[in-house]
């Protein structure tokens, strides 16, 4: 009996882990694209918050979840445009401007939440969508193939990002702009355009990651600061992943399992104060970052360096 119980707990943990990996995947893969082009988008957390609020609000008011998601895409695109303008055109110090975008996102989501809804409301998010046949595979079926469609989409994005970055002309341009913008520029690639596109796509994905936190949940709700640092962890993930989509997948699962684990500890009272499990993901992030930077770090060479034609930095 207790063995059965343990199996259920572990299965539940794994299922939650796969679900919780989704925001990390969306935001992490988007951030990876942005960083590959040479732009550190540190505002992911704030953009996630905006996506979380906008999608929930629109879905709640219209009753249509897809409309909510579309709104998140638009809001994310707008924030991406702002981020790109600040870090590409205005050549701002990306570490700081990103914090500005984060505070702005925190403020805007909080402000409009108070103005429009005011109190916490809930609605049904995207339902589970069991995949026929595959769902009957023991263990794996329940863990992987009985989730909602956003989870599948996030998982599918891993091979898609890989293909885009390594197998398409666009991916080649992105990499060249991130590695050596001056060489790319001399070959007629518009560094500015490529970076704008990458930052905007990355921000849209961050916004979708935020939307998953609200309308991607069975019981959808928006609360202030719902992202709770996940956006920053997504940025850290990219470093851990060494700018590789498969690494992002591994990192997303690592952090989502920790997330699932700490949520579980908070629920079952085992006598330790809840703050300790809450601290866990952040501490693990630091440890993982410290361990993963050992040896050669192969980040995009031009990361965080604004491009000015003729000025080599």
């Amino acid at each position: 009996m207790s063995e059965f119980f343990q199996a259920t707990v572990i299965l539940g943990l794994l299922t939650a882990g796969v679900r919780l990996a989704t925001p990390f995947l969306f935001a992490g893969l988007g951030e990876m694209l942005s960083q590959r082009s040479g732009v550190l988008n540190l505002g992911v957390e704030g953009i996630m918050l905006i996506g979380a609020f906008v999608s929930f609000y629109v879905a709640f008011e219209s009753g249509n979840l897809y409309l909510g998601l579309l709104a998140a895409v638009l809001a994310g695109g707008f924030m991406g445009l702002l981020t790109a303008f600040v870090s590409v055109t205005m050549k701002a110090v990306q570490g700081i401007s990103g914090i500005g975008i984060h505070i702005l996102g925190l403020g805007l989501s909080g402000l409009f939440f108070r103005l429009t809804m005011g109190s916490i409301s809930t609605m049904r998010g995207f339902p589970r969508l069991a995949i026929p046949i595959l769902k009957d595979i023991p263990v794996l079926g329940r863990v992987l193939f009985n989730q909602n469609w956003m989870v599948y989409a996030a998982l599918l994005l891993v091979p898609i990002s890989w293909a885009v970055i390594y197998k398409t002309t666009f991916g080649l341009k992105v990499r060249s702009v991130g590695e050596n913008p001056h060489a790319a520029d001399s070959l007629g690639i518009s560094v500015t355009r490529v970076r704008y596109i990458c930052v905007i796509i990355g921000s849209i994905m961050a916004s979708i990651a935020g939307a998953f936190l609200t309308i991607g949940q069975h019981e959808a709700a928006f609360v202030n600061n719902i992202a709770a640092g996940r956006g920053f962890i997504a940025v850290a993930l990219v470093y851990f992943a060494k700018w590789n989509p498969l690494g992002v997948l591994a990192g997303a699962f690592l952090f989502s399992m920790i997330d699932a684990f700490q949520l579980r500890i908070q629920i079952i009272d085992i006598g330790i104060p809840y703050e300790i499990p809450v601290m866990l993901p952040y501490i693990v992030t630091i440890v993982v970052l410290a361990l993963s930077t050992r040896g050669r770090v192969l980040g995009p060479t031009a990361l965080t360096k604004p491009f000015v034609r003729g000025v080599h930095t």
Binding site: L82, V86, I96, L104, G105, G107, L108, S109, G110, L111
Partner: peptide
């Protein structure tokens, strides 16, 4: 929350 909005804008 307006405080954050103004602060974020000022930073940016």
């Amino acid at each position: 929350a307006m405080v954050h909005v103004i602060q974020g804008l000022v930073v940016v």
